[in-house]
Structures are given as C-alpha cells and as structure tokens.
C-alpha cells in the first residue's frame, strides 16, 4: 500500500509546485494579452520575491524582520521593478519590431539575475515558512476505520501556496470582471486602438499590468521558496515552466493557464517519482519536452484540441 501513499504525497507536492507555475503562467497571460510581448523577465519576479524574503529574514544580515512585513515589501519591490520594465518597453518607437521588445525583456532578465548574483551569491538560500507548525499527517484510516491507511504528511507551506493560488484566482476574476480598471485591461487585450478610442490610457494600463504580474510573481516566489529554497538563478527555470504552462493552456487563456500550471507541476513531481534515480536530474527537461510536444501537436494549447473536436461533432 506504500505506493498509494507515495503517489498521494507526490500529488500534493506537485499541486503546490504547480500552483506556482500557474501564477507565473497567469503573469505571462496578463502581459501577453495586453502587449503581445512574451516577457522573459517573468521568472525573475519569482526570484525577487524569494530572495528578498531571504534577505530580510535571515540572521546573517542581522535584519530578521517578521514575514508579514517582509512579504509585502518583496511584493512591492517586484511591482516597482515590473512597472519600470513596462515603462521601458513603452519607450521604443512605435514601429519597433517585436523582436527588439523581446530582447529588452531578455536584457531585464539578465540584468536582474546579475544584480541578484552580485548581491546574494550563487548558493541556494533558506527562506522561512509562513507558519512554523505543520499540520498532523493526513490519514484516511484514522477517519474511516481504526488503523493506518495511506498516511500523507502535508507541510503547512504547501497549504499556503495552494491557498494563495486560489485566493489570487478569485481576486483576479473579480478584478477583471467587476472593476473598471480590470475591464479596461480586458478591452486593451481585445483591441488596443479601440480601447484608446474610448478614452482608455493604454500605456498607463500596460504598465499597471506589468506591475500586477510582477507582484503576483513575487508572491509566488515568497510562498514557494520555503519549500524549494531560493537561488539567484531560479527565475530562468520558473519562467520557462510558467511559459510552458501558459502555452499548454493556450497563450492568453486564463483558465487554461491555471489548469495547465497545476497539471505540469503534478506531472513533473510524479514523473520524477517513477524515473530511476540516475535520471532525477533530468526532471527539469520534462516541462520543455511537454512544451515542444504541444507546439508540435496543438500550438493553441491542449484545450483547443478538445474544443476543436467538440466543434467537429456539433
């Protein structure tokens, strides 16, 4: 019966990691739909969130601030960085080719990574969990009959990550459907010129979209770092996997990004569990192979495949 426990265990850590991918994928989606730019610095926001949390809480720097102060600071710093990036991207001439905009985001990514490496070194760093106490192991046996059946231990931080993701999704749904700013952002995503015609300040909104997705990324970083540890270069992998999730879910598709992010996290964690140990280092290749497969088979995301089938049947 051990394998059921193990699978459940991988499933839970997969969903936790996948929630982070989902948040990063949402960040890609928000920026892509308002600017049609793939933001290569997206993963760096996660790194900023993780590394600032480490920096302001860790003993060696003598700061040791409480997390409820530190996390908002990390999110705010990241939002400002995102705002700046959005501002820079608005600078080039209007006829600038998309490639130059993308290279600007690559430059920003490299710059942030360089600054982080310069500031915090190359080693993996610890980040404290939001709450110190883990819940007791979840045991179906204890509920249904006496004895142990599929015991699974859950870290409190994993619950935090999943909870944050759910809250973020609810918040974003309300934001995009109920608030004026959110509706304006959707208008920009549908048609930039049309939005401008009805009096929407497009460039200000785009900068706002950058700040929003940067803040989300930093929050995800601060939440996942206690589980995965922080690292100056973690942004690249986070960005890549978030992007893979965004593509698998269909770039620009809100719900698709979330589902694909969680799915990717689960596949990756469970896949690593089944691989022989000498292949464990290749776990990171998983997201990339899925990305290429989806681009090959159904470039508009896996849900497009399903929708197409339904359309044919109808």
């Amino acid at each position: 019966m051990g394998w059921i426990s193990n699978t459940l265990q991988s499933l839970i850590s997969g969903i936790a990691v996948g929630s982070t991918y989902a948040i990063v994928a949402l960040g890609f989606t928000i920026i892509f739909s308002s600017t049609e730019v793939v933001n290569f610095a997206q993963g760096e926001f996660v790194m900023i969130g993780a590394m600032i949390s480490y920096w302001l809480t860790y003993d060696d720097f003598g700061l040791r601030w409480p997390l409820y102060v530190v996390v908002p600071i990390a999110v705010a710093v990241s939002a400002v960085v995102g705002l700046l990036l959005g501002w820079v991207l608005m600078r080039p001439r209007k006829d600038a080719s998309p490639i130059s905009l993308i290279i600007i985001t690559v430059g920003a990514s490299v710059l942030l990574q360089g600054i982080a490496g310069n500031q915090w070194g190359k080693d993996a760093v610890p980040v404290p969990p939001f709450t110190a106490v883990d819940p007791p192991p979840l045991d179906l046996g204890a509920i249904f009959h006496n004895g142990s059946l599929f015991p699974v231990s859950v870290q409190s931080q994993q619950l935090w990550v999943m909870g944050l993701m759910v809250l973020l999704v609810i918040g974003l749904t309300l934001f995009f459907n109920k608030t004026m700013v959110g509706k304006a952002l959707r208008a920009v995503a549908v048609n930039k010129h049309g939005a401008r015609l009805v009096g929407i300040n497009v460039s200000r909104l785009v900068m706002g979209a950058f700040a929003l997705s940067a803040a989300m990324g930093a929050l995800a970083g601060a939440a996942i770092a206690p589980i995965s540890t922080g690292n100056y270069a973690m942004g690249a992998m986070m960005g890549l996997k978030g992007f893979a999730a965004a593509i698998v879910g269909g770039l620009g598709n809100f719900t698709g990004s979330i589902v694909a992010g969680v799915l990717l996290g689960v596949l990756e964690t469970c896949g690593a569990g089944f691989l022989p140990p000498e292949f464990a280092q290749y776990k990171d290749a998983f997201a990339f192979i899925i990305l290429l497969l989806v681009l090959f088979i159904s470039p508009n995301g896996i849900f497009a495949l399903w929708r197409r089938k339904k359309a044919v049947r109808a």
Partner: peptide, 18 residues
C-alpha cells in the same frame, strides 16, 4: 565585482534595443 559582466550585458541589451 561578482557577475559584473552579466549586469553589463543586460544593460547593453536594454539600451541598444530601446
């Protein structure tokens, strides 16, 4: 300085492309 080359590359990319 650690990683100064990386920082400079990032700056070059941004400035040239802008």
């Amino acid at each position: 300085w650690r990683d100064i080359d990386v920082i400079i590359y990032g700056l070059i990319l941004i400035v040239v492309m802008v």
